[in-house]
Nucleic acid binder design. Structure first.
Lengths: 355, 355
DNA sequence: TTGAAAGCGCTACCAA
DNA sequence: TTGGTAGCGCTTTCAA
């Protein structure tokens, strides 16, 4: 039998509640499905009387339109795709939370996927979202090439990059002003009297490069030049990232001569590793080495030495990204890509406070 | 014009790449769409020659089936709904991450929504997922009534509760053995020589009640009875939760006489607040008051005093939930609800170590 | 082994 | 103001 619900009227409740269709409401009220459809979408040319009757019946039956049917004909899925490198990372978790909040109540559903920092996985997730025909895509990318973003744009799907950008791709971008991050942290360390400031930089992303650039600029503005050995990278592989990476990098820094008296870390997990390495070396924070992180992660206040950190305002990033996404989906014509930079702020705590 | 792609052959690339349809492949190869459809789904009665030709062309054109069309007819959306109380909370973030990983590569997309701990919001999110016709729903609930879960079951959609359960609802459940959590933490404090052990309990959920029960049981097993004033609640409203709630609750505990010499906290954020209150009162951890939390959150190692915590193995919870979800969607008949309890482990750190 | 026809639930278009 | 008709891209059924 093609239609499994023949005889539905006779057995309104069988094993399960089958969703109500427009057809059911139309039959009940002696109208056509077209009329029901128009009422649902607030179409103007419907009689007041009819509208009320339809609305009432929809309510009674708890009618819920079938997204698949609608998507098939309109091409809109009312679905938003979000790809992040790591759901557990407080920065991306906060961004995801803010995006979720920002689109709430607008009828959209958010498909959230994680690339686990693997470019190849990210490409696959993007393909999957493309196959789903999401209306707009938000990506905090772990890739170094822009090929898959081109595929998104070729499809005419609006794309918003978050946090990390690419020089060879003009696209919507929402993120923090990374140079400002670097300047803020470095200026502060200089202010606190640090003479030999080191930087533990992140991987090859716009974020890491921007912060490094800010670091250099701030030093240059004070006629300081960083020693090459005072700029170190963390390992590229998964396990070397975060705290363990910061620990190893700092061990190296502390062995160098002259020893740095201040370290600006690419992010807070690295800073945690750095602090541990400093303690393990029998040194004091901030008296011997001052530490500044970035991200202002949760619980920074509760650490052995509370961590000074640059706040990236991830909530604002998520909120702005959500607003931009909503505005892009309701435009018919593609518009000129927008760049929205959030201004970072410094949250000073004990790890850098020498006075 | 009903079909906006007439003339597509003549202008294979206009402004954007229109997704390829079965019809396109069928026309190219002089076959019918039915044949293409059968090849796609690995149907047996297709000639080897034909199958190869079709597969090749699909590859070339990068064919992606239209989920909406497929869902409309099969009723399966290949979509999984996940509702958590808070995406930023490391426990739920980790669970979400593990679920995401657990269903990866199976063709499903994960719609993740947050209730922000508001029952009413959770109900709305559930309605939205119901309207989306997700194939299975995973919920870490913030509700106290089970009404909306019944609606899910009435629809015949498999439901998996995570972390928090309900006495009046028989449903699939994946979570930690909360009584074991309470016993583990309390036994440890007793072991460390604590005489007057307090508990800061959580809100009215199965989780909080289970841990409280474990706390009582462990004490009883050592012929100890907790003082009523040594069992305190944190406030119910959003801001009182977490660290601030733990801070206030602990201030109260420290004023009571006799003063507790050990505190088992419902979760780690509360424990952080508790530790701060203890320091602020000029007391030492663990010498004056030992503290145990629950959740084993990230960075516990890096705190002023590293926090002893009961690990709930959120990864395992997510992994098991994902496996269960996948098995439920591939069953035609509803099966008897399963309960999967993960065994907690104690991670001992300085905050409770007195020897 | 292949395909014609019907139809999933809805919306676009146009006529009444 | 209302509705008939066609069709979105796909799967199901059944006949060739």
């Amino acid at each position: 039998m093609a239609n499994p619900r023949e005889g539905r009227e006779r057995q309104p409740k069988l094993l399960r509640d089958v969703p109500v269709r427009m057809k059911d409401i139309a039959r009940d009220l002696g109208l056509s499905t077209v009329t029901i459809s128009k009422v649902l979408r607030g179409h103007s040319d419907i009689g007041e009387e009819t509208r009320k009757r339809v609305l009432k019946r929809m309510q009674e039956l708890n009618y819920q339109p079938n997204f698949a049917a609608r998507a098939l004909i309109t091409g809109r899925t009312w679905t938003i795709g979000l790809v992040v490198p790591d759901l557990l990372h407080p920065f991306f978790a906060q961004v995801a939370k803010a995006i979720s909040a920002g689109v709430r109540g607008q009828g959209y559903s958010l498909i959230i996927t994680s690339s686990e920092e693997y470019p190849e996985l990210e490409r696959q997730e993007i393909e999957q979202l493309l196959a789903r025909r999401v209306d707009v895509m938000l990506i905090a990318s772990a890739q170094s090439t822009v090929e898959s973003f081109r595929r998104i744009e070729d499809r005419g799907i609006p794309l918003i990059l978050i946090d990390r950008r690419f020089v060879d791709l003009v696209a919507n971008f929402v993120g923090v002003d990374d140079e400002a991050v670097g300047v803020l942290a470095t200026d502060h360390l200089i202010d606190q009297g640090c003479q030999r400031i080191a930087h533990i930089r992140g991987p090859e992303t716009s974020t890491a490069l921007g912060r490094l650039e800010g670091f250099r600029r701030a030093l240059a503005a004070h006629r300081l030049t960083p020693l090459a050995k005072h700029i170190v990278s963390i390992g590229a592989s998964g396990d070397d990232r975060g705290a363990p990476g910061g620990y190893e990098a700092t061990k190296k820094l502390l062995k160098s001569s002259p020893r740095p008296d201040g370290i600006f870390c690419f992010n807070d997990p690295i800073a945690l590793g750095a602090m541990r390495a400093i303690f393990d070396a029998g040194l004091r924070i901030p008296e011997d080495v001052a530490v500044v992180g970035c991200g202002n992660l949760l619980y920074s206040d509760f650490l052995r030495v509370p961590l000074t950190s640059v706040d990236q305002d991830s909530s604002a990033i998520g909120k702005i990204a959500a607003e931009l996404a909503l505005s892009l989906v309701s435009q018919k014509k593609p518009s000129r890509p927008k760049t929205e930079l959030v201004t970072p702020t410094l949250v000073v705590r004990a790890s850098s406070l020498r006075h």
